[in-house]
């Protein structure tokens, strides 16, 4: 347990190791650690930002969805209305058309009836004239008895 040169030797070794540590160990280690710390902090901040962004996006998406639904509902509504309107229009058009067709048919029927009646009347007049000719046994002057015949025919 003597104090001797070992003391000096240890001091020299001490200085050497401290200098080595100061030059080659401490700075790179601390630099790496500081860098990693920064990286982690950045990463966390980015994650925070991302989650915030996500929240915003979700909010926006929900809003858009709501809007879209609203819009879709509007479109369906309009379509329904339009459909009803079309049906109504078609119905109206059909009624009008039907009326028109009916009127035309009636007019034709009337016309046909009138014509048939006219024809019939003419034939009846001729028949009546022929009958009268036979009954009278004489010639009836066509011209002088035309008025009478016509009157007879119209009364048929």
């Amino acid at each position: 347990m003597n104090i001797n040169l070992t003391l000096i030797g240890q001091m020299i070794a001490f200085v050497c190791f401290v200098m080595f540590c100061m030059k080659y160990v401490w700075p790179p280690l601390l630099a790496a650690m500081a860098e990693r710390e920064k990286k982690i902090a950045d990463g966390l901040a980015a994650a925070d930002r991302a989650s915030h962004d996500l929240e915003l996006a979700q909010e926006k998406a929900v809003e858009r969805l709501k809007e879209a639904k609203h819009e879709a509902a509007g479109i369906v509504d309009a379509a329904n209305k339009r459909g009803a309107q079309l049906i109504e229009e078609a119905k109206q058009a059909a009624i009008v058309e039907a009326d028109r067709v009916k009127a035309a048919a009636q007019a034709e029927i009337e016309q046909e009836t009138n014509r048939a009646r006219e024809q019939l009347r003419g034939q009846v007049a001729a028949l009546a004239l022929a009958g009268a000719e036979k009954v009278l046994g004489a010639q009836i002057d066509q011209a002088s008895h035309a008025e009478l015949v016509d009157k007879l025919a119209s009364e048929l």
Binding site: M1, I3, T6, L7, Q10, M11, F14
Partner: peptide, 11 residues
């Protein structure tokens, strides 16, 4: 060894 510990202490 006191030389060792004192060596550092003196440093």
């Amino acid at each position: 060894d006191p030389n060792i510990t004192l060596g550092m202490a003196v440093g």
